[in-house]
Design a protein around this nucleic acid. Structure first.
Lengths: 107, 107
DNA sequence: CCGAATCCTCGGTGATACTG
DNA sequence: CAGTATCACCGAGGATTCGG
């Protein structure tokens, strides 16, 4: 199923694979929003400015698939679903920190 | 000129702008190749595995435009063009380092 | 050797309406 | 509230050829 292309993005230097995961337009914004606290779907939709439902769903699914976030659904009415970062996801904090540092210095 | 869309990618958190620069599929591979040494066009084409001419030209232009790399042409025959990182470009080293660290731990 | 110029494909993204 | 379902678009990316 899916059978992604998985051509060698470059030398075997691991950065390529990582970028393959966090390359999306919304990956970092979402991760960043969850970095502070667990959020529900609607809260995320508001927190990540200008994203729409479809993209949010899609990204959340991908991120969950990569093991960066956890989806927890409660059988309440109305439904409640909470998203939070996994260890793997939280481990991206230093990466984001470095990017922000770079942005601050050169942008 | 150009007048990029520049809609607010997310909250004003700077990560968005940075990602806008390094999001391309080839940005990091190229930067990484140049991190070690100055390279000529053809050398780059070989160093960045599986890239093609057009993409290399395009990316180099964009990166030069963003001030990440420097293009230096010599009027020799045959022509010689060397690309090297600027300060701004080299400053991405810690970012890449963090990504590699993350990759090593979680991929 | 170093690109510029074309043509084309495909997936990421967006808007909107609908459902459990 | 938390998604699914469709339709449509645009630009990044690729293959190839041509020029200085």
């Amino acid at each position: 199923m899916k059978e992604k292309k998985e051509i060698s993005l470059e030398k075997p230097c691991s950065v390529g694979k990582a970028m393959g995961i966090i390359k999306g337009r919304w990956s970092f914004p979402i991760i960043r929003a969850l970095m502070q606290e667990t959020l529900r779907f609607k809260e995320l939709e508001r927190a990540v400015f200008s994203i729409n439902t479809r993209m949010l769903v899609k990204e959340l699914k991908e991120l969950a698939n990569e093991g960066l976030i956890t989806r927890k659904a409660y059988a309440t009415v109305p439904p409640t679903v909470e998203y939070s970062l996994t260890e793997k996801g939280r481990a991206l904090r230093p990466v984001i920190a470095e990017i922000e540092k770079w942005s601050a210095n050169f942008l």
